[in-house]
């Protein structure tokens, strides 16, 4: 077991390295820099700025320096926000994105698993049909359509919510639904097919024959193996929720990481973009690994040695 964990975590290192190197190359090889469009600076000043940030050094030195700093957990200064480090920007905006992501995940899991179980209990019934149609809708209505439409109907039309912002508790509702809807849809489909596989099996009949209440049979005996596909979907889902926050945070003007990333990308803020990509990648890869480990623990048939 310990070997398995160790192996999984060691396998993360080359992926991380590849991500960092690729991003570094992409961002640095691009024509134009963060200070090229600011014409009001005299050339000497730009030279001085470049020297200050080490941008005048050869590429490989910059790369090695960056890796060295990274190992010490320092993501460097943000070029377009003078006097602020990428670390401090992340520390300020990540909690917002994390909260949004958690709410969205909660929405996705509650609605998704609920709808999936209901659909699987009465396959081909009207209820099944309705929840699967809804889930199809969730897949086909992307966040950047759903978000503005929700704002149009419930904020501008009905006036129940603020159209944007992240201050009051009710500000959390529309963004969470926007971000979570697509994942709720996938989870509903996965839960339905997982439950349909489990429900006809012998051990469910045995549990029913023992006189266990129907609710307990479904919630405890069937659901545990039934949501297996959902657990393996959680890795990509969390990754998707993290990157999906770009759109949601832009729509609702939420001061989170995603909005920062889009702004940084537009401004060609090298270090900010690079730092955020590193941070995202660590998160995504960590979650994927964690999900694999959880799956291995849940499923005794999966060999831990591989």
């Amino acid at each position: 077991m310990i070997w398995f964990l160790l192996k999984r975590f060691l396998a993360m290192i080359p992926v991380l390295w590849a991500t960092i190197t690729l991003t570094f190359l992409l961002v640095r090889l691009a024509p134009g820099g963060p200070f090229t469009d600011e014409k009001q600076y005299p050339p000497q000043a730009i030279e001085q700025i470049n020297r200050h940030y080490g941008l005048d050094q050869p590429m490989y030195i910059q790369y090695l320096r960056y890796l060295g700093k990274l190992l010490r957990g320092d993501l460097g200064p943000a070029l377009k926000y003078s006097g602020r480090s990428v670390n401090s920007i992340i520390a300020e905006t990540f909690p917002v994105s994390l909260e949004l992501g958690l709410w969205a995940l909660l929405v996705a899991l509650l609605i998704g698993i609920g709808a999936g179980v209901v659909a699987a209990l009465r396959p081909n019934s009207a209820l099944d049909w309705v929840s699967m149609m809804l889930s199809m809708g969730g897949i086909c209505i992307p966040a950047f359509v759903l978000g503005p439409l929700l704002v149009l109907i419930f904020a501008l039309g009905a006036g129940w919510f603020n159209a944007s912002g992240w201050v009051t508790a009710s500000d959390r509702i529309l963004p969470s639904i926007t971000l979570g809807a697509a994942y709720a849809a996938y989870i509903a489909r996965l839960t339905r097919s997982g439950m349909l596989d489990v429900l006809p099996q012998d051990f469910i009949r045995t549990a029913r024959a023992k006189g266990i209440s129907e609710w307990r049979v479904i919630a405890v005996h069937a659901l545990k193996p039934g949501i297996f596909p959902v657990v393996s979907f959680l890795g990509p889902a969390i990754a998707g929720i993290i990157s999906g926050s770009f759109v949601t945070e832009t729509i609702f003007h939420i001061p989170g990481l995603g909005k920062m990333f889009v702004a940084g990308a537009f401004n060609r803020d090298y270090t900010l973009v690079l730092g955020l990509v590193v941070f995202y990648s660590v998160l995504v890869i960590l979650f994927n690994t964690l999900v694999d480990v959880v799956l291995a623990i849940l499923n005794p048939r999966l060999k831990l040695s591989t």
Binding site: A30, V262, V273
Partner: peptide, 19 residues
């Protein structure tokens, strides 16, 4: 497998910004 683990949406965004 390695490519799968990369956050690709992020890469596409960088690619579109940079070039």
């Amino acid at each position: 497998d390695i490519l799968y683990a990369l956050p690709f949406t992020v890469f596409v965004i960088i690619l579109m910004v940079v070039f």
